[in-house]
Design a protein around this nucleic acid. Sequence first.
RNA 1: GGUCCCGUAGCUCAGCUGGAUAGAGCAACAGAUUUCUAAUCUGUCGGUCACAGGUUCGAAUCCUGUCGGGAUCACCA
Length: 597
Amino acid sequence: MNLEQILTQRAEEAVVALYGTKLDANVLQVQETRKEFVGDFTIVVFPLLKISKQSPEATATTIGDYLQTNCSEVKAYNVIKGFLNLVIADIFWLKFMSETSFDHQYGYVKISDASAMKMIEYSSPNTNKPLHLGHIRNNLLGYSLSKILTANGHCIIKANLVNDRGIHICKSMLAWKRWGNGETPESSGKKGDHLVGDYYVKFDVEYKKEIDQLVKQGMDKEEATRKAPLIQEAQEMLRRWESKDPGTIALWEMMNGWVYAGFDATYQQLGVDFDRMYYESQTYLLGKEIVMDGLKRGVFYQKEDGSVWIDLTSDGLDEKLLLRSDGTSVYITQDIGTACQRFEEYGIDELVYVVGNEQNYHFQVLSLILDKLGYPWAKSLKHMSYGMVELPEGKMKSREGTVVDADDLMAEMIDTSREMSQELGKLDGLSPEEADKIVQIIGLGALKYFILKVDPKKNMLFDPKESIDFNGNTGPFIQYTHARIQSVLRKAAENNLDDHLEIDTNIVLNAKEVSLIHAVYNFPKTINDAAETFSPALVANYAYELAKEYNQFYHDYSILREENPAVRHFRILLSKYTAQVIRLALDLLGIEAPERM
RNA sequence: GGUCCCGUAGCUCAGCUGGAUAGAGCAACAGAUUUCUAAUCUGUCGGUCACAGGUUCGAAUCCUGUCGGGAUCACCA
């Protein structure tokens, strides 16, 4: 039970004792006291006036008196209008400090009683082009969310569904066959995913030329788009792929292999990974039987041309196609199949899709269909919907070449962090390997934090100039605070000041110290909230607040020069815990916290 | 047109299960270094929380409407 819950309970007892009325749940609000007032927690008494039949001030004072007398955690109180501010006894904070262990990962996070098995699908790239900034947001969110859910005691399976088939892959294959001259990643020195992406672009360029040509010859634009020889050839290639033509399959496997090698490198640098890979080439036929079965049971209906539909108009949605008139699957058919497969294969309790908000409608429909099919877990599908990443010059458009490539972006961030580190002399005395490592940690920390600090569901603006700022609300600022605390701790160790770090419960805390402990104390709550709302941004902003809090603490005190050993030990320990919580919070974001920088 | 999301300082963002005088960072200006890392800290400037109603002791927060921005409504994935 945390402090807020204890106080809520005590206050409810107080109301029973003083006014003889039992309150409904949630009538009583305990919240943190705002910085400008004295106190740690505040109870708002306005809702109690009907019961107390007293003025706000009198009610607050009466309850304050009771709590001070009967609740050992409450040391003092003050009343401002209808707000009862409670001051928590130092002994509570000191006990918290001495009883809590931060040494192992999440060791002190209360694991919820019903810890669940969850699968979280993220990344989901196409194999016809390299990853870009939008994928970075997806990957960072997915990876961070999986860590946050793990920290809450859940068992998480990280899954990636690779879209490795379809007309877009055939476009790359065709262009490579025609204009590639046997170019490979080895022969060209290009990363495999970039190489294949280049041929995808090449196809588009040539395809456009053909369309223009046909239009010039008087053909209708739409017809030209359909009848251009290149697109027809690509479609023919897709048919050969689907009939498992050996030559086509071999080419497909070779080029996809290049792409996977490229993706692996990107994933590795970004620091994300997966427990289970799914490939659309293996799953795209799933779901058809389930749809046919649903048709038999009358959940779906068939039109005259043989296509299968579901009518969702009574749910405020539209009619949705499930099987084409030629009997082949569409996107959602496959998703129905893979969802069933996953719940059967792993017995998971929840399936989370990290997918952009342009697919909100799709997932709404998917969940509804599965519900109508009678699957009890249909409501356990969760869509972690996130907004688009925009650039100062507008939206990313691959056609207009305004896409920010993931590999380029990471390289740029690292370069910038190297320049800034060098300017400040931070790399002096480091070996080239050490310098590379630190520069990478900081550059990527800046990128990850910049993206994760924003509420996932909102569209965000990515301004490259601002993202490489290392001051203020940024990843490097938090990393730097952590590194500086480590420096303090090293110094303490050198001077043998940290060898018996038990807490003297008689020392008196000041406002800054209480404020810092309070911030540390809030970490588990933050992780819980982040898991419930699918929002790594809560953890990010928490980490920043904590780092800022520590910087203020540090500037007012010469920790190691403090002469009272008990106080000195306490401050060293508080520094240590703060550093550990910062490191854990950054870890939940997939950001490393270096010991020095 | 239907549905969903967003609108908070010049800019980027917090705050949203209703609570006190709406907060940070950037930018601008003024300061701070005998001390553990100045990638730091302190201060000043900056607001009709898009607008209008409603709910109530109290609304940036909840409801309704309007305006503005975005997404989506394919026999694409």
